[in-house]
Amino acid sequence: MSSLNFDPLQLSIIVSALLVLVTGIYCLIYSRNIIRMIIAIEVMMKAVTLLLAFSGWLMGRIDLVQSFIITMIVIEVVVAVVAAGIALSVYRHNDTLDIDQLDELKG
């Protein structure tokens, strides 16, 4: 069981990780290009990786968290590849990566 009173270094790691997460979400919401959105997802996942590594350091079980992070990286790559494949097919249909062109489904 870890102590819940973080020292300034630990607190700064948590806060910066959450800031990167928020940056990723902001980028995801406000970009209008599919590739930019995929990059935003990657930024979010980097923040989460930092948080996971930090949590392992805090509880003194880096070995467990290493296995978590490697599993997570594999999954992240799969999601990125699928997203890129969809982006490619969208480009072939629309000749543009603009997200505003994806507007057929409404209601």
Partner: peptide
């Protein structure tokens, strides 16, 4: 995953 990481930490 962020929730899991924080849960793991605390």
């Amino acid at each position: 995953l962020a929730g899991i990481a924080i849960m793991n930490a605390v």
